[in-house]
Design a binder for these strands. Structure first.
Lengths: 341, 341
DNA sequence: TAGAATTATAAAAACGTTTTTATAAAAAGG
DNA sequence: CCTTTTTATAAAAACGTTTTTATAATTCTA
């Protein structure tokens, strides 16, 4: 015995298929008695509508897709949690695709598995695909990516300003030799933060030194290695402070510094980005620029749903970061300038 | 102009719908020339199959559902990441539903939105729903929940063995007086861990003392209080080591010990369970039994897919924990047995 | 070379819904 | 009372596929 369909309910209740459909979707065209009778029969038979049939007919799936390269780490889980909850609240489900396979991505998007999509920037959907999505009137919101395209939405963390402000903060503490630990150079956020950092340096006529831009890949391990090898290769160029591309990177940086006998923040200040939840538990607690990740997720979903339901145009939304001062940074201790080194 | 369908391709290519379908799904019944011609036309027209139509007809969605109360924190993101990747590898997508709404859950499961489901235990799907799922032949794997039901799969963390191994490890360090800080007595995991602990003690003919089983409720605060009051009431029974019911509990325990002037691990070793992400950042870094979360996810997905594709029966799988030795435990320092205390 | 078997394609049915259109019965209008 | 509206329900079409069945053309068999 297979699944009970609307047809079975109709037969059992002695009415037509359309009557059952109307009863279930409470269209007010029905005789109340008929309606409640049908509903009773449906309930008794444990009828549950087949969503594929429904979706095919209506062209709506009530599902949103999140396409990303990863969901690991505090950044992503905060994002996914906030998006999933917001979806649930709005009557949608969330489809998470962790993949780099363009084929998978496009066939799911264009195949109408979901009513709209959230795309994480690292996927770097190319222009051809974007224009394809545009032609098909796909509703999409990009995270952390700026798209010139006016039909697509985007929600980004203003990394340039964040980088700029974080650097200005370090300068205000009296630090002059400030190093930046870059993430992945193809990533918008990473580049923006670095540009903000460089801008602040220039504005204060401070040294802009190529050697002071390390490569940490947004990872603890990668940064740890990068900082260690930097200390090894340039023992004469010890910076006053490190601005790490994100908190994980800041943690890796601090570990590397500790392992070389430096104290953070007494000897060197370190500042990160994001304010992931570990940040406040780390020793020392991290000074960081908070990325309102959860808010970003909620904003993206809300916007996407409005684009779907209210045909709203794609907007560009920038979220400002917020400097959270904790224990990994402090005023530069001015040692005897002549005596040391 | 709407979406291009298989019908449009058929017209454009001058063949029938079924020929197009056969060409796309490379059924080898077609003349190779016809096939490549159709494929070319389809490509030129940017044809992408509508998945709803396909799903309705085939009855398969190539989607798996994950139903949970949360995706926050290291446990969940590790789980979701591993499941999503495994899904991708096997040609499935993952649907994540973060909700407690039974209505949402059941309508998505029974409405055949997904080919199979992974259900996180905290949802506590009741027996009625389980039997409903059984009747509908829903393929399901439960995480961290033991179901007597033979048609459903489950993957659980073997807390008994974890408790047993952790205790054996402490014994191997030379500890003899080992206390256990229990979680909540109604919870499976807590009881299992305690039983494993007791088993290990017995096996090594070590003291099994009622007083050495404290109540910490799986919480930092509760454990802190429990340990403090223990130290207060039994100053003569200072243990060599504490086995805490989970990492949070271990943290509370260490804090209590510190506040009494004890050093961990020099004076007393402490071991926890789970390996939450704070564990490695705490001072001292926690020795703990890691729940192999990623493996649990992969196992669950693999099993589920086999249940779907190979009609495999639901199995019960237990995963052994993995001891992660860090800084909160060390070899018992044998002080002069006669001189001290 | 007539009939059988094979090959390649087309036509039609089906999946389970919703929606549009048709029909029958009841109520209203004059 | 006979037409016109209104009301309640049924029938049919449609969504975009896959799959089953039918048909035509070719090749094989004896």
């Amino acid at each position: 015995m297979g699944k009970v369909t609307i047809k079975d309910v109709a037969r059992e209740a002695g009415v037509s298929i359309s009557t059952v459909s109307n009863a279930l979707n409470n269209v007010d065209v029905l005789n109340p008695e008929t309606k409640s009778h049908v509903l009773n029969v449906a309930k008794r038979m444990n009828y549950v509508p087949n969503l594929n049939g429904k979706q095919l007919k209506t062209g709506k799936t009530k599902m949103l897709g999140f396409f990303t390269t990863s969901v690991s780490g505090p950044y992503f889980y905060t994002l996914v949690e906030s998006m999933a909850r917001e979806c649930d609240r709005l009557g949608y489900g969330l489809n998470v695709f962790v993949t780099r396979d363009k084929q998978v991505i496009m066939s799911n998007i264009l195949g109408r598995r979901v009513d709209g999509v959230i795309i994480y920037e690292e996927l770097r959907i190319d222009d051809e695909d974007v224009s394809m999505m545009m032609k098909e009137k796909i509703k999409a919101v990009f995270l952390d990516r700026f798209l010139e395209n006016e039909t697509m939405g985007s929600v980004i963390f203003d990394s340039f300003v964040a980088g700029y402000e974080a650097t200005k903060y370090l300068i205000s503490l009296g630090h002059k030799k400030i190093a930046y630990i870059s993430g992945v150079d193809t990533m918008f956020d990473s580049v923006q933060r670095r540009d903000g950092y460089l801008e602040a340096l220039r504005e204060h006529q401070l040294l802009v030194d190529e050697d002071y831009v390390l490569q940490g890949y947004f990872e603890e391990e990668g940064t740890y290695n990068a900082v260690k090898s930097f200390l090894h290769m340039h023992p004469d160029k010890l910076p006053d402070a490190f601005l790490a591309g994100n908190d994980l990177s800041a943690i890796g940086c601090i570990r590397a510094l500790k392992s070389h006998g430096f104290d953070v923040p007494a000897d060197i200040s370190v500042v990160g980005f994001d304010d992931i939840d570990i940040a406040q538990y780390f020793t020392p607690p991290l000074t960081t620029v908070r990325n309102q990740i959860a808010r970003q997720g909620v904003l993206a979903i809300d916007h996407l749903v409005r684009m779907i339901q209210k045909k709203e145009q794609g907007k560009k939304q920038k979220l400002a970061g917020e400097l959270v001062v904790r224990g990994s940074s402090q005023v530069k201790i001015q040692r005897n300038d002549l005596g040391q080194e």
